[in-house]
Design a protein around this nucleic acid. Sequence first.
RNA 1: GGCGGCAUAGCCAAGUGGUAAGGCAGAGGACUGCAAAUCCUUUAUCCCCGGUUCGAAUCCGGGUGCCGCCUCCA
Length: 466
Amino acid sequence: MTLRVYNTQTRKLELFQPQQDHKVQMYVCGPTVYNYIHIGNARVFVFFDVVRRYLEYKGYEVTYVQNFTDVDDRLIETAQQEGTSVKELAERYIEAYFEDMDALGVRRADIHPKATEHIDEMQSGIQTLIDKGYAYERNGDVYYRALRKDDYGKLSHQSMDELKAGARIDVNEQKENPLDFALWKKAKPGEISWESPWGNGRPGWHIECSAMSRKYLGDTLDIHAGGMDLCFPHHENEMAQSEAWTGKPFARYWLHNGYINMGSEKMSKSLGNIVRVVELRQEYAPRALRYFLLSAHYRNPVSFSHEAIRQIENGLERFDTAVANLRHRMQTANEGDADQEVREELDRLTGEFEAAMDDDLNTANAISVLFEAVKSAQSMLSRPVLSKGSLTAYLDWLRRFGSEILGLIDMGEEEGLDQEIEALIEERQQARAVRDFQRADAIRDQLAAQGIILEDTPQGVRWRRK
RNA sequence: GGCGGCAUAGCCAAGUGGUAAGGCAGAGGACUGCAAAUCCUUUAUCCCCGGUUCGAAUCCGGGUGCCGCCUCCA
């Protein structure tokens, strides 16, 4: 099976072919850490976490880099308002970011570089751009000559004429052209700053990704990804300056995910209609949030609603009961390997799962395959005779695809019951044996009040926590 | 003005030529002492109007509605 992905730059579905056969260099733009992240921010992090896991499943050795923008206008402004330092502010929200991501089951990137720790690399890049004639200094600011190369606009598909015509750029007399953008910004009095050949200042936004991706992943990335709103100007500018800097193509595949809408509008900090992860994960099972973010194809918009997430919480129970039912049956199953029939069924499901993911990372379809597997497992459980191998095969399948790749199935070990509860279950069984259903039901109700659901099956009593 | 996207059941949502995946909710049935869980069955004029085609949710043209990017934004 071969993976195909939609490349924003070519606007086509392309066969995924990294530079080196078994390695993938992947860079995903991370958060600007001046506040908590919202569910829209989380979409990109959760989705590309799945992409990374899937690439690993396919046998690639993935190097995943995600930056923190820990100095910029908003950080400076927020720090001033709160009477704290940019550094303290950034540290606080980096920690908050990891707490949110841990809850959502997002694995850490291999490297999480911070802009403020790569000032030298950025300055060196800026100097190279100046030396090559792609950048110029004006009164302590340094700007990139956007139109020096005639392919500016090739990522976001804007012609230079249109950009010029449509440029509603702030009036900045220092720029040669309104489309030029800052590589280095002169510090205002009292602002955080670093020394440079052009005076004290701080880096522009775009140069950090160019410098850090190059340092950790090399001149050409296999995958560069982020939200759709980063396509222009951020990624366009990154690509322009990186290619001017190195003379090589910057990224082979550009992947951009769609927004989360509130009603019909995009969720965004500037519109003020955001819902933060830090609050949502108090209200809902974090797994349900993760499922919600993966329930639509990544390039499509998804509408946020509490109703949708509640529905998903119900759906997740199907995964959990399937796992619990398979495990319960292990106690009474026969020794033996998986049946041929089971192996064939699981191979079929594997094929479907891969087909979904290989088709531009269609997580919505991949999830539907998970449900197919669950249904298939439950059907098998109705058979009177089963081998442990067959049960294990299903559990392994669910672990691999539901847990390790999508991160939606919780394969945590079974909890033990305490002795008192076990005694009650046993007492109920004895009551049932003598058809004292009143007593039996009373015990069941009592346990239900403690959140323990009993289920009578041909293989004995099964229980689970609600 | 330029570029792009979306419109599928009560709700979420997949699906780019062969008469509609999956989930939630609802209905009926099986199983059960009763339940629960599970399984089976069931619920769609695919926004509208034309066109191409043996055949279109899917392609083309024209509408309608909504949204995004072109400026900070995942």
